[in-house]
Nucleic acid binder design. Structure first.
Lengths: 169, 169
DNA sequence: GTCCGTTCCATGCGTTCGCATCTACCCCCA
DNA sequence: TGGGGGTAGATGCGAACGCATGGAACGGAC
């Protein structure tokens, strides 16, 4: 086997792995979407509420955007809608006149818990029902490794071709 | 450990695994989106072209919808746009006056190959660069199992609470 | 042949998205 | 202290989405 062949195998293996990961995610997501629990907030909105539920003091809009699936403008408008619906509260960020601090209201926290509980049940149904404990652990591990190996979003703009794993100076 | 505790652990393990899978997929997808190759077709459009590239005789719109990320109306309009751009051809389905058969044009097939080649390189970079061969194989296997265990989309509407794994009568 | 329920795709409509851009504010250095 | 580059979030705008629905074609019952 030549060096080129070996590289081609690696490329192919990565592409196949990604396609499986992608399709599995789509398949599960479609089923989760069918759940009738998304009448008050959409799944994407829930994802924001969930992230906020882990940050008791609230989060800067900018930090929220980083862990969100949305672009910054879309998130800005989604937070606006969530505030109108009473799930979220916006306040000026302490110490930074530009910033906005977003936090759950009591209603928002209650909604997140209620929806979250049912959502987890659905996940257990579709994911837990398909994989045993060992497979779940393997999936958790490898997906975690995959995500951990990605460069920070800030590093993306200045060259994705740089060395991965190179320690910061 | 009680039976309830064991069940709770399972639910939690499934939820954690799903979250890792989901976040890894989002992280990778965001990076793939940054690739400058999406100026002629979007990633979602490419996904449709890719599916068509594996079906030499073309596909019914309904079959395309099943493997797509989009709703049927959205796919219908996307195919309309792809046809306007010359990547795809629509024809009446033989033997079914309601159906539409979608197939790649020569230009569409060429575009799919060209974009696909570059896309695979990006995947190799972000996925292959993060996981070794063994991890890639593990990911492929478990993601494949996860997807294979999902009920067909047609089965979804008549009760997701039914027994999993029950053989069809 | 006719009827009736189902399937397939297209279309009207309101919502949400991303891109580009704008304003306000922060920070640093001369 | 005042200017200039950089960052945080909001907004105008066109594109694309999903839901609900419409019209045509299929297929089995009678």
């Amino acid at each position: 086997m030549t060096v080129q062949d070996a590289a081609a195998v690696d490329v192919r293996a990565a592409a196949v792995a990604w396609e499986e990961l992608f399709r599995a995610q789509v398949a599960i997501m479609r089923r989760l979407q069918r759940d009738p629990i998304w009448d008050r907030v959409s799944l994407r909105e829930y994802d924001v509420l969930f992230t906020l539920s882990r940050a008791p003091g609230g989060l800067r809009l900018r930090d929220l955007a980083e862990s969100s699936l949305l672009s910054q403008p879309s998130l800005s408008r989604m937070v606006e809608r969530l505030e109108e619906d009473g799930w979220v509260r916006r306040a000026p960020a302490p110490g930074d006149g530009r910033g906005v601090l977003v936090a759950l209201t009591d209603d928002g926290a209650a909604l997140q818990r209620e929806v979250g509980r049912r959502h987890v049940q659905a996940i257990a149904h579709y994911v837990g029902g398909a994989l045993d404990a060992e497979q779940l652990a393997a999936l958790t591990r490898v997906a975690g490794d995959l995500r951990a190996a990605q460069p920070g979003i800030a590093d993306l703009d200045r060259g994705a071709e740089g060395d991965r794993g190179a320690a910061a100076p």
